[in-house]
């Protein structure tokens, strides 16, 4: 159909296409936020849980010998970045659940029978929603960490937190939605989430630096996407942020700040372009 249409017309339709995609996306996002406001318990739990992590883990290692962590930071401020990233990660990993319930209750049919410009709107709305929640959670974590005396990453730190979380949440949300459309039901999805969650935490630098790990775990941790999100934030906490500085001394070589962000960026785009056409095909 579009083949005979002139270039000028094409740009008009492209413009209206983006208007329509944002209309769909906003409407779907609005629904998620209405649900959140009317059922705030998940958000409250989602804010409290990382704070408890921070307090308990921080306390657990509060008498650790000075200089345990390379660079001379306290374990508490070392931990902050790990908790922020892990919280965002597990939140995003759960993003597929509401979609799975929509499938199971048939609400998804309402979306599928509608002339959506792009079914990526479903992904976009979940990403906007999850990112907002992660930012709220991270902010709560950072304020608490500051109050306990673990420090404050400063303005550049804040911006790196936002960029990193956006990339991480985007890729993990896309992955979770991909699972929500391929797995048979919510039981299976919960099982996958359950199995993926903690191992990814332990096989990352969230709780301990690479130098503490045996070689094999060091390999895993320096391939783990969580590590690429944790280290830039951690660097922001430990002083003026320099993305050119080496942040990960991986067994395969050194990775600097830009390297970390590039990996996350590649992951986001890779997963999006893998999963988005899959949604459209699966749902055609």
């Amino acid at each position: 159909m579009t083949s005979q249409i002139t270039g000028q017309f094409d740009s008009v339709t492209a413009r209206s296409q983006w208007i329509e995609i944002s209309q769909e996306t906003l409407a779907l996002t609005r629904r998620l936020f209405i649900q959140l406001v009317r059922r705030p318990s998940t958000l409250i739990a989602g804010i409290l849980q990382p704070l408890i992590w921070l307090l308990l883990f921080g306390a657990l290692f509060s008498k650790a010998p000075e200089g345990l962590i390379p660079g001379g930071t306290s374990y508490g401020s070392f931990l902050g970045a790990g908790v922020i990233v892990f919280t965002a990660f597990s939140g995003a990993l759960n993003a597929g659940l509401p979609v799975m319930f929509d499938r199971e209750f048939g609400f998804l049919n309402r979306l599928l029978v509608a002339p959506l410009r792009s079914r990526s709107s479903i992904i976009f709305s979940s990403v906007i929603y999850m990112t907002s929640i992660s930012l709220i959670q991270s902010f709560a974590i950072m304020v608490t960490a500051a109050l306990i005396g673990y420090g404050w990453p400063g303005l550049s730190g804040l911006s790196i937190v936002i960029v990193t979380l956006l990339l991480l949440v985007f890729s993990v949300t896309a992955l979770s939605l991909g699972l929500a459309f391929t797995l048979p039901g919510h039981i299976e999805l919960i099982a996958v989430i359950f199995v993926a969650n903690l191992p990814l935490l332990f096989a990352s630098t969230a709780l301990a630096p690479l130098s503490f790990m045996p070689i094999w775990l060091g390999w895993l941790a320096s391939l783990n996407p969580l590590t690429f999100a944790i280290e830039p934030i951690r660097a922001a906490y430990s002083g003026p942020l320099d993305l050119n500085a080496v942040l990960i001394n991986a067994p395969y070589g050194a990775v600097n700040g830009y390297g970390c962000l590039s990996v996350l960026m590649a992951l986001s785009f890779g997963l999006f372009f893998l999963i988005s056409p899959m949604l459209n095909r699966k749902l055609a």
Binding site: Q23, E24, A27, L28, R110, A114, P115, L116, R117
Partner: peptide, 9 residues
């Protein structure tokens, strides 16, 4: 209904 209206642009 508002959601529906937006899905139909």
């Amino acid at each position: 209904l508002e959601l529906q209206a937006d899905l139909y642009h």
